[in-house]
Amino acid sequence: MSIVPAPILRFYHRMASPPHFYSFTDKLLPWLIAIFLLLLAYGLYAGLYLAPTDYQQGDSYRIIYLHVPAAWMSLFIYVIMAMAGAISLIWRMKIAEVVMISSAPIGASFTFVALVTGSLWGKPMWGTWWVWDARLTSELILLFLYLGVISLYGAIEDKRTAARAVAILALVGVVNIPIIHYSVQWWNTLHQGPTVSKMDKPSIHVDMLIPLLVMAVAFKFYYAIAMLQTAKVEILKREQNTQWVKKLLEAKT
């Protein structure tokens, strides 16, 4: 007996099979793209146009509609990557390996966006592009972890061995995630404390908060789209000698 309901378990087992995963994501992707575009259009319009200006920063604060969701995604994707790594180590599941390695470049990009937008905001507001405080430094380490994952995977010829090595690296690096999140509370930093993700009620006006949350959800959909598309390519590459991929290619040509 299992604690997970039978239909979910069946879905999970079917998704573990590459051909099923491939055809399922093929059908899912157009929907994800449609929802993403709607959320992004509304989020950008509401964030850049409808939301009121800030009492101190004027319009400059609007960069949070990119910076904060990107920074959240950089942590979120890393956790997904580490969890997929753990699953692939324990159950040797091919799809988990593919999800893990397809997430890395997207996570690295979001980390890069968070660092760059933060820097652009920091110059006029703080008076500097960059400081070595705990928050900024730990986020930079996160970027290096992502780059380490990507290059380690590329350096090992056999992709199943590579995935195992990468999974261990990803799991070791997961210690950085709580450090990034709590850095602004544990130490004095130039970076401000949490606005939304704290126990108290968010210290941001609700008209500014809603576009921020919409953008955060839009970024989640973007991640799903980009990750699944990368995963599809990775699956085709790994399974190129199997019957179902050959059939698929014949049907397309």
């Binding site: 404390g193 941001i204 006006h205």
Partner: peptide
């Protein structure tokens, strides 16, 4: 030799601040 402003975590429209 250098002064940096530390922003706080509060965001609100000017009317609310007033």
């Amino acid at each position: 030799e250098e002064v940096l402003a530390k922003h706080d975590e509060n965001y609100m429209p000017p009317e609310v601040a007033d």
